[in-house]
Computed example of a mutant assay.
Amino acid sequence: MATTQRLAYSGSMRAQRGWKTALIFAAPALLLFTLFITLPVLEAGYASFFNWNGLRAPSADNFVGLGNFEQLVGNKTFQRALFNTGLIIATSLVVQLPLALGVAALLSGRQTGTVLFRMIFFLPFILAEVASGLIWRFMFDGDVGLITQISQAFGGGEIHLLSDKNLAIVSILVVATWKYFGFHMMLYIAGMQAIDRSLYEAAAIDGATAWQRFVNITLPGLAPTIRLSVFFAILGCLQFFDLVVPLTGGGPLNSSHTIVSFLYYFGITRMRIGFGDAVGVTLFLICVVVAFSYRRWVMKND
């Protein structure tokens, strides 16, 4: 009996020491998270109830309650921004990720030159977003851009993608696909290299074709990586902003805004900080719902 009590006491002491150690190491991270995430989110939520310009502390005189959120509901530009963000997500899932998976399948082996091509396809991802946007803005320029020059070389006319309100978003989709598919490609290559090679060897001995090996071995083995890639893609698209500013600035006629660029141009630059905070809170809630729902229903076994 005494031995049992001593063992229980010893286990309790180890557990207490473990908690103390965990708190000591977690405290700096918790402090930083509180200062730079929790407090700003709470402050933004508070300011979203005021018609506030950011120069003075919100007061009862400029309290508007849910007025900023009500403005969002009927704002056609915000509705367009929501549609564009959804379009970017759809393009990422339907075009960008399958393209990344196909290129990863071609470059996952150890053939000569695969490392070079991996680096070439990954380079756009490490290039700064602003630099990428400026490069493609020049290429899409309707007067001297590369696209127009190619068109004129084949007897066509000038192509003004960035000045057409129906085509400006297409230019953003093209650049976003070019910019980010390399990141997902590298994720897939890493996942493919973790699959047991003996499975492929056994399938080849049994006479399975390359397509059959891909469908029955590669895709099931990549399932957790694909789910993670989709998660990154959706959250990244919801926060899409850096390429919009140098490429289109949300124009023409506010036709190419995303949620975050709408927040920036109609909140911060116009000194409507309270309205911008309402947009930010809305985006935050969307991201939280998507993240937790995806984690709960799609990645529950990962």
Rank of each mutant, 00 (worst) to 15 (best):
D143F: 14
W178N: 06
Q239I: 02
G280R: 10
A47G: 05
Q212G: 05
L97K: 01
T77W: 12
Q111L: 14
G67A: 12
G280Q: 07
V288F: 02
E70P: 02
W52E: 00
A278G: 11
L107R: 10
K300E: 01
A291M: 09
V215Y: 11
D196G: 08
M185K: 03
F138G: 01
P220M: 11
A104P: 05
L23I: 12
L243E: 07
S92D: 15
Q96H: 08
V289S: 03
D242S: 15
K76S: 14
G67N: 03
I286V: 15
I88K: 04
S229K: 01
I135W: 05
V144A: 13
V288W: 10
M186D: 06
G133D: 03
V174D: 01
R296N: 07
A210K: 15
R296Y: 05
G155P: 08
G251F: 13
I273P: 00
P220E: 04
K300V: 03
G276P: 08
A100Y: 03
I234F: 09
F232Y: 13
R213T: 03
D143M: 10
T114Q: 01
A15N: 10
F63L: 13
K165E: 11
D141E: 02
D141L: 04
T209M: 13
M186G: 03
F122T: 08
G145T: 09
V144R: 13
P224W: 03
F36N: 01
A47W: 12
G18C: 11
P28S: 13
F140A: 11
F25S: 07
N166I: 00
R296L: 06
T38P: 07
W178I: 05
L35I: 15
V130D: 03
F232T: 01
T209W: 08
A8P: 04
A204F: 05
L123K: 02
G276S: 03
T248P: 07
N254Y: 06
A128R: 06
V288H: 00
R270S: 12
F78M: 04
F241Y: 15
R80D: 14
A176K: 01
L162E: 08
G221K: 11
A131S: 14
M192H: 04
A8W: 10
I126K: 00
A90C: 12
T91C: 14
L93V: 04
L31H: 06
Q111A: 15
Y264D: 03
V115C: 03
W19A: 15
I37T: 15
R272D: 00
R137F: 12
V245R: 13
L283E: 06
P224F: 00
F121Y: 15
V103T: 08
A203V: 12
M1W: 06
S132T: 15
K20Y: 11
V260F: 07
T114D: 02
V130Y: 11
V174E: 01
R270C: 00
D302K: 05
L32M: 14
